[in-house]
C-alpha cells in the first residue's frame, strides 16, 4: 500500500474549482517534485494532504491514517507527515532549539531532556548545531529554513511536504537548503515537494508531477518529463522555466 494515497481529490474555493480530481500514490522513499504554473493547484494539493485545507471530496491517507477533519484524527495524520513552508514560519519568540523542542514536548509528550537530545541531533543533521540558542531573527533565511526542517524532522514523520521551500530565499542561500533536502532524500525520506528548482527536480527526484489547471497533466521520471514532454502544456512550461 502506498505511503501517501490520494484518490479523486476535489477542492474548490467558492465557485472556483482548484483541484479537479487528483489521484496520486506515493511509495515510501519516493522523492516527488510537483511542478506547474502558479495557480495550477500544486500548493493547494500539498496543503490538503495534511489538512491545512478542507477538501470537498475524495480521500487522502498517509501511512494508513485517513484524513478526517476533526482535531483528533488530524493530529494523528500530522504526526505522520511534516510540512516545510515557503516563509519558514519559525516561532519568533523561541530560540531555534526551542522551536525544535516545542512540539516534541507538547504533542509527543517527550520530557525536556529527551526533546533536547533529539533537537540537538536534528540541528546537527541540518548543520546548525552551533545555532541552538539563536533566535530566528538572528539567523539568515537559509538557516531559518534549515531550522524549520529540523523542527519537522524532530517529530519523526514518515514523509515531508515541502512547499516552495527555497522561493523566499536570496539566491546565494538556496544551495544550503537544497543540500539538506538532498541529504534527506539520500537517507530515504519520502518527500513531496512543490518546487521551481527544475535542475534540482531533475537531479534528485524519482518522479515529477506536472500540474495544469487543477489536474495532474503529466507525470513520470524526470528523464522522461524533461527530455521528452508529451503534452504541449508541459513543453511550454519547460520552455518557460528554461528561459
Amino acid at each position: 500500500m502506498p505511503l501517501i494515497d490520494i484518490d479523486a481529490l476535489h477542492k474548490s474555493y467558492g465557485e472556483t474549482e482548484v483541484l479537479k480530481g487528483i489521484d496520486l500514490h506515493v511509495e515510501a522513499g519516493e522523492v516527488i517534485a510537483i511542478i506547474g504554473k502558479s495557480g495550477s493547484g500544486k500548493s493547494t494539493l500539498l496543503r490538503c494532504i495534511n489538512g491545512l485545507e478542507t477538501i470537498n471530496s475524495g480521500a487522502i491517507s498517509v501511512g494508513g491514517e485517513q484524513l478526517v477533519e476533526d482535531e483528533l484524527h488530524l493530529r494523528k495524520l500530522r504526526l505522520k507527515v511534516g510540512m516545510i513552508f515557503q516563509q519558514f514560519n519559525l516561532f519568533p519568540h523561541k530560540t531555534a532549539g526551542q522551536n525544535v523542542m516545542l512540539a516534541q514536548q507538547v504533542v509527543k509528550k517527550r520530557r525536556k531532556a529527551e526533546a533536547e537530545t533529539k533537537a540537538r541531533e536534528v540541528m546537527d543533521r541540518v548543520g546548525l548545531g552551533d545555532k541552538f540558542d539563536s533566535y530566528p531573527d538572528q539567523l539568515s533565511g537559509g538557516q531559518q529554513q534549515r531550522v524549520a526542517i529540523a523542527r519537522a524532522l524532530a517529530m519523526e514523520p514518515m514523509a515531508l511536504l515541502c512547499d516552495e521551500v527555497t522561493s523566499a530565499l536570496d539566491p546565494e542561500l538556496v544551495g544550503e537548503v537544497l543540500q539538506v533536502v538532498r541529504a534527506l532524500a539520500a537517507d530515504g525520506m519520502t518527500l513531496l515537494m512543490v518546487t521551481h528548482e527544475m535542475a534540482f527536480a531533475r537531479d534528485v527526484c524519482s518522479r515529477v508531477v506536472f500540474m495544469h489547471q487543477g489536474r495532474v497533466h503529466e507525470a513520470g521520471p524526470p528523464s522522461e518529463i524533461f527530455a521528452n514532454p508529451k503534452t504541449p502544456e508541459l513543453r511550454a512550461f519547460i520552455g518557460m522555466a528554461a528561459a
Binding site: L52, R78, F91
Partner: peptide
C-alpha cells in the same frame, strides 16, 4: 499553520 502541521491542538 506551522503549529497545526506539527500536530498541536
Amino acid at each position: 499553520e506551522a503549529s497545526a502541521s506539527l500536530g498541536m491542538s
